[in-house]
Design a binder for these strands. Structure first.
Lengths: 183, 183
DNA sequence: TGCTGTTATTTCAACGTTGAGATTATCAAT
DNA sequence: ATTGATAATCTCAACGTTGAAATAACAGCA
């Protein structure tokens, strides 16, 4: 019996106790197909499951402030880029990883809510600049610290050093799969 | 100038070069709101962005075999649980993290495709057992090794030790957010 | 000026999921 | 037996995204 350094997984010879759903998956495959080692699932499925649980956490958090997660994503993109707090629809599209059609839809509704406004570029009339309104700006300035604190709560079971190591490893994978710096 | 052990991030005094989109986000917030440290984003946003990119990778992979990712998820759940290769709709629901309505829909279509079949439980007639057909079984037995190899490709920029460390850290977060072993 | 190719955004039908309610069945207690 | 509570699945309308096509504008060049 061997307890690892995080004290969350207990091996007993070849058998081990499942702690989360992904452990169960790996354990089951090990029994059914011992000829195939599905270890990559330990990372890949966890990233996917965690992403879903994070969605729920963030949804619950922003609901306290009458905001949808996707609204925060757009507002955040506009606020953090600095004065004059505007970005083209295309820039928001790549920053948020959704299709252009979805951004049109989102901006429509946020414009109606008074959080952003569309401004047609005078130089290139194809492009549309989405600008943060005063109301959207104030909302973000209130929320960003709370959002960061909520993030710290979510990551609280890990040390800062562990978080940094995870972040670096995930960045390597992101770059490998094509993620690039913004702009 | 300080190159870290993964050689992917270069610091220059307080300034640092963004490598992926999340670096850009953190960098921008650091300029606009130096009073707020958004470091949790380095993990949280990366998990979410990586999950999306993984979805695309898996979608492309399974498309080569005329299969949707969600079809693989259901088939995998049934195959790895061992004989008689069946699970209740509820068990599949929690294993795949989607709602029961979605599972009804998925099983409908997979039944039409001949990959699974519904069997009403004789003991408890509320429950429906979803059973793998011979065709579904063969399909999974072909695919699982290829799927594992594809996972190794996706994780190839990291060492096995790094993957294991990441998997352990993600498991801690999953358990913290309520994920449990299956069954 | 007209042509061709490219870029930026919007439109929209198809699609799948969600979430709440309906349905059917079981179980415990009376 | 009957009642009430709980459980498992299905139904379905509402919703948001996707992906492709449409629209509009620019850029280079003859």
């Amino acid at each position: 019996m061997n307890v690892n350094y995080l004290n969350v997984e207990i091996f007993k010879g070849e058998m081990f106790m499942a702690i989360d759903a992904v452990d169960s998956v790996i354990e089951q495959w090990g029994r059914e197909r011992p000829d195939v080692d599905v270890w990559p699932t330990g990372v890949i499925s966890r990233v996917q499951r965690l992403s879903r649980l994070l969605d729920k956490e963030l949804k619950a958090f922003f609901a306290q402030h009458d905001l949808e997660v996707w609204e925060f994503d757009v507002l955040s993109t506009l606020r953090r880029c600095g004065p004059p707090y505007e970005r083209t629809a295309g820039a928001i599209t790549s920053a948020t990883m959704v299709t252009s059609g979805a951004i049109t839809n989102r901006v429509d509704r946020m414009e109606a809510k008074g959080l952003v406004e569309r401004i047609r570029d005078t130089a290139d009339r194809r492009t549309v600049r989405i600008r943060l309104t005063e109301r959207g700006h104030q909302l973000m300035d209130e929320l960003i610290a709370l959002h960061a604190a909520n993030g710290e709560r979510i990551l609280s079971p890990l040390s800062r050093e562990e978080c940094d190591r995870v972040a670096e490893a995930l960045r390597v994978l992101l770059v490998f799969l094509g993620d690039k710096r913004l702009e």
